[in-house]
Design a protein around this nucleic acid. Sequence first.
RNA 1: GCCGGGAUGGCGAAAUGGUAGACGCAGCGGACUUAAAAUCCGCUGGCCGCAAGGCCGUGCGGGUUCGAGUCCCGCUCCCGGCACCA
Length: 693
Amino acid sequence: QWMLRITDYADRLLEGLDDLDWPESVKAMQRNWIGRSEGAEVDFGIVGFPEDRIRVFTTRPDTLFGATFMVLAPEHPLVEKITTEAQRGAVDAYREEAARKSDLERTELQKEKTGVFTGAHAVNPVNGKKIPIWVADYVLATYGTGAIMAVPGQDERDWAFAETFGLPIVRTVQPPDGFDGTAYTGDGPAINSDASDRAIPGIAERGANLNGLHVAEAKAKIIEWLEAEGVGHARVNYKLRDWLFSRQRYWGEPFPIVFVDERPVLVPEEDLPVTLPDLEEFKPSGSPEGPLALAEDWLHTVDPETGKPARRETNTMPQWAGSCWYYLRYIDPHNDERLVDPEKEKYWMPVDLYIGGAEHAVLHLLYARFWHKVLYDAGVIATPEPFGRLIHQGMILGEMEYTAYVDAGGTYVSAEHVAEDIDTRTGLPVRPKLVAEDRVAKRGDVFVVKDAPEIRVDARAHKMSKSRGNVVNPDEVIAQYGADAFRLYEMFMGPLEQVKPWSTRGVEGTFRFLNRAYRLLVDEDSGELNPSVQEAEPTKEQLRMLHRTIQKVTDDVEGLRFNTAIAAMMEFVNAANKWDVLPRAVAEPFVLVLSPFAPHLAEALWQRLGHAETLAYAPWPEVVEEYLAEETVEIAVQVNGRVRGSIAVPADAEKAAVLAAAKEDENVARHLDGKTLRREIYVPGRIVNFVAN
RNA sequence: GCCGGGAUGGCGAAAUGGUAGACGCAGCGGACUUAAAAUCCGCUGGCCGCAAGGCCGUGCGGGUUCGAGUCCCGCUCCCGGCACCA
């Protein structure tokens, strides 16, 4: 098997996240996946086995005095050796049972802790105390050292185990007053943590003393002690594992490796790439090797150096071998000399905006960062991170569904009594039943069956899935409404990153909008340019509307707020529909801002406007600030923070004039009547607030 | 349990600390039509009121502020991820 040593990059993959413009959720997932934790490794002696040590990893070395027993994973190599004859039968049985269980079975159910005593004892290095060594499957062989010191006083899991098997519990961190829980994992002064009055045979002249120190200080002090006495050291541990990169299948890049006398040899660069042989049969070979083992002609080759017979590696690489660097190669796909030309890489990299699904958070998006850093270290590329800004588009769910529940007898069961298709009152199964939208009504915060208002229904949109039967096929939507309306609807539904339920009626809305935009410029009967489109001078109102739209769309595209950009264009079309004359100088820029959203329609409109060339090369319309200015503005007038009126004033009106006008508003005057004015607040162009009592 | 993100009309949503609900869907009323579809116009958070207007309202409870959907503190629920990681 071939592994990639991604663990060497753990810290850099972690640190690199800080400067990326990525969603917090993905950063959190990657941090969690890498799973860095700081602590210490500590060696415990074993009574009767002076040559052996049990090494543990702990993030709480400050609690060493509270270690009242040890636990080894069932797979730990020392279990066999240290188990006493009296305990051997029980231990072997436990290990066999653990081996039979899947990982899921071992962890899934948060059931009672299980375990078995080995009969052996360890020596706690900080105080010389003998503590029993147990075997339990709550300790994972694959994390840390596969062995733990159990500190029930400060660890929930160890507490549960100690309770189950009647093992001693010693608190070594003073819980706060009134604490009535089990294990205490918070901060506090160390207690019961002084062994400085005695020697620890074979380890130290005097034991350690942490009493009174808080967690952080205690950790530092005990690590110092452990290092001084040679029984432990500071250590950083990761959840991240090295990356198994071999697959026993045909489709995949072959490893450029041949075996000569059973030893792997790199295929020289001039013989690269190693390509797949043509095969008739892609099924598993019947051996642990993949189907390539059956390609005899390809399999057997010679060592280019010595001419000795050689056998090719039959594993292939997984799909990541391509997806981890395609974005680099796409920059310069025909380059025979290098992966990518440095000049081109400098121009394009890093990727400015990566829009993709959240399902790649700890796979592709972590692996690609790793490869990128390897290539960076190798001097092949010049950027340490591949993707600057990352956005996850929210999933589109199926249409909203109203689900009622019926029991075996066909009687409705109100949704609040149902959990996982079980009536929680009777324990009997119920089955979900879809209810049409017009048969439900909202009562307060919940939906109920219209004819039976005491029966609640679940109102929820679900992930599209074949099994649920709520998949919307884009081809059908496009066939009915066109690609422009379909795309526009997807952008109009809501914020890009949000999960949103699909609504075919919603598509009709954007479809209608596009039709209105079309009729704005095209005469439906003749198919020619609408006579209202003229070479006329635009009015101030038209220019204001147009430029407001250009500004809004431009800003919103920049900020990926497509939904509000589309709303602005809808407002433009609604306003323009009321105009008798649509000056060409207004119509053309509008078509241009519409074009990225509805390219087909916009192109057709552009043609009707008399352009022989595509609009793709026309410059994006510029906002002219002076057209945006309004002559009069509406200002809300509040009295004590409540809106009591609204006045229209010239946009450049002085504060005094605005306040005077505000006081004249009939309703405002009424609310001020008989009160003393304490304060007058004026936010230009927005609001007046009179504080009075 | 831990981490991340949410909660605003019947629904999808909008709102630099400044008139909550823009825009769209659905609904209601009207125009056009023999009729329907399409289209166009108007209304549309709740309650009270003939009206003018008033009261309430952005998950819940507090707070800061002239003013809070927005800021702060404490919760609840929902979604996503991780989960015996020592």
